[in-house]
Nucleic acid binder design. Structure first.
Lengths: 123, 123
DNA sequence: TGGAAGCCTCACATCAGTGTGAAGGTCAAG
DNA sequence: CTTGACCTTCACACTGATGTGAGGCTTCCA
């Protein structure tokens, strides 16, 4: 599929699809005319990228973890061929993500507690 | 306390403390000489702000929810005096935060599953 | 064959968060 | 009284994510 269709199907402007490619998050093939050609799986891939960006990750972080998020692309590096340094880096990313989750969950709890106090009549 | 001490105690550069004030996240008093004067609670407040920024929230979102994160500042608006529109906005923020948590947790799980596959010998 | 639509690259613009430095006021200690 | 540390505002710069437009090629359809 070409970039226009991918844009329509994901709601992501073509500008950003090109940007994600520049950031090594997408790797479309090129037709003889220079047009980008995306596989079907790119739709899910783009949605994954958007979710992570919206969750506050940078393109660099996403680039680091994306190959291992086997959601739909089946090109996951074989676990046995992953050097321990890579695994260690991946673990660091997991830790950072966990820290974010903890911080967000903590504050979500405070807000919900507050909201519960605001409208106890809503019982 | 003045800005230098707050900076030292939080590890946040004075430049950013002034920026957070510009974004209405901090409200130091001013001495007769124009110097900013922060209460003791500002230390916790700044740490709270940093945690949320590091978790990917914008200063605008933080500004919206900060008054209700009663961590240490006791100046929480009284629940009974909160108009329902405010509560609704707050709920939207909670929902957005929850969406982030869900996305991050989902992908954390994928990464940890992958890591578990990488080193099964670590048992 | 011609025009519209879609694609290409390039480039400049914006916003948020942050770094850095200039130019100057305040204050305490020597 | 001067020096040095600390404070003030102002301003320019950078990065990352994104918007926007120009100029030009390709493809398709009437």
């Amino acid at each position: 599929m070409r970039i226009g269709e991918l844009s329509r199907r994901t709601g992501v402007p073509t500008r950003l699809l090109r940007y994600y490619e520049e950031q090594h998050l997408l790797h479309p093939e090129r037709g003889g005319n220079g047009y980008r050609s995306y596989p079907e799986s790119a739709v899910a891939q783009v949605q994954q990228i958007r979710g992570l960006l919206d969750s506050g990750l940078t393109t660099a972080m996403i680039h680091a973890i994306l190959p291992y998020l086997c959601g739909s692309s089946r090109l996951v590096p074989a676990p046995e061929s992953v050097p321990p340094e890579t695994a260690a880096l991946l673990q660091e990313h997991v830790d950072r993500i966990q820290a974010r989750i903890d911080c967000l969950a903590r504050n979500r709890d405070r807000l919900t507690a507050y909201l519960a106090a605001v409208r106890p009549e809503k019982r």
